[in-house]
Computed example of a mutant assay.
Amino acid sequence: MYQDGFVEVTGGRVYYEIYNQDAAGTPVIILHGGPGTSTYSLKGLKALGEDRPVIMYDQLGCGKSDRPTDSSLWNIDRFVEELGQVREALKFDEVHILGHSWGTTLAAAYCLTKPSGVKSVIFSSPCLSAPLWEEDQKRNIAKLPADMQETIRRCEAEGTTDSAEFKEAIAAFSKEFVFRGEPDFEWLKVGAGMRNPEVYQTMWGPSEFTVLGNLKTFDCTSELKEIYCPTLYTCGRYDEATPETTEYYSSVTPNSEFHVFEESAHMPYMEEPEEYLQVIGDFLKKVDEKS
């Protein structure tokens, strides 16, 4: 059974979808990346609904959710509150949480409030420390051709990150560290319409590489030892969320596992979808069987 609709949250309404609503397994809530993108690229994860409900929602400000103009809403505390409001409205007492990219930032911040009923958390291509993310991107940029490195540094320094040459450099970076597959232009076109650049600019900044927004000081690394539920960390071998940093996060998290998708960058759910679904699905089933 499929259901969709809207939930009232602080600041407006968010749009949600539930796949396989009547399944017996513990539901999994998907937290999309961004901030300010949508669940659009993650629709393939509805396949996890073979034996459990799968819940996806567009965070406030993007996708099919309301787009208020109050920029004070774009902060991590309100997004944590929003997740709690979605759970409460949909009456999910027990859940698994799967966050991707910025969704892992949100998942960690939420879990660290010690909510009840979280059976497991999956950090997919995690960003749990803005300073560590910046350091990793410096190393990744250094792997690009020299002219691309120079363009990125110069455009960031001059504030010309909206220029054609910077976009060309971003495309080269993305091909290496974000998505290594062939671009689906229809998907890119629709996905672009789901985005809200203001949310990203406010919270992160004008580029992937240097954090200038209100997440600049976010770093929950020292608190990961407080996440006691079963935890799975995943990333791609060529991920901007690097295997080294992702494995480090896992090493300081009790009861955690770590998996690398060997042929992927930052979007293994699209680059290696069969293996991604297998790894995530097996983890969820294992947790359910033990509980």
Rank of each mutant, 00 (worst) to 15 (best):
Y238G: 09
G236C: 11
H259P: 01
P243Q: 02
P273K: 07
L284R: 09
Y249K: 09
Y248W: 04
D288R: 11
L284I: 11
F218V: 11
G281P: 04
E244A: 11
F258H: 11
E240H: 03
S251K: 11
L277T: 05
F283C: 11
T231N: 08
V279P: 02
E244I: 02
H259I: 07
S251D: 10
Q278C: 09
A265M: 00
C235W: 04
E244C: 00
T231V: 09
T245W: 01
K286P: 00
S251I: 03
S256T: 01
T234P: 01
K225N: 14
K286R: 15
K225Q: 12
V279Y: 06
L232N: 14
P273N: 07
S250E: 05
S250F: 01
F258D: 10
Y233N: 03
C220P: 00
E272V: 11
C229I: 09
I280T: 14
K290C: 06
V252G: 04
R237T: 10
G236I: 04
P230M: 05
D282H: 12
K216V: 08
L284N: 13
E263Y: 07
F283N: 07
I280S: 10
D288F: 05
G281E: 10
T242E: 09
F283G: 11
V287R: 04
N255R: 05
F283K: 06
S264A: 14
Q278D: 13
G236R: 01
K290F: 01
A241T: 08
G236K: 06
R237V: 06
Y228T: 14
F258Y: 14
M270K: 13
T242W: 00
E262Q: 09
M267E: 11
C229S: 05
M267Q: 12
S264H: 04
F258E: 04
T246I: 06
Y276P: 09
F261M: 12
C229T: 12
E272K: 05
E257R: 12
V287I: 08
P230N: 04
M270F: 12
S251C: 02
K290M: 12
T245V: 14
G281S: 13
Y233V: 03
T246A: 15
D239R: 04
D219F: 09
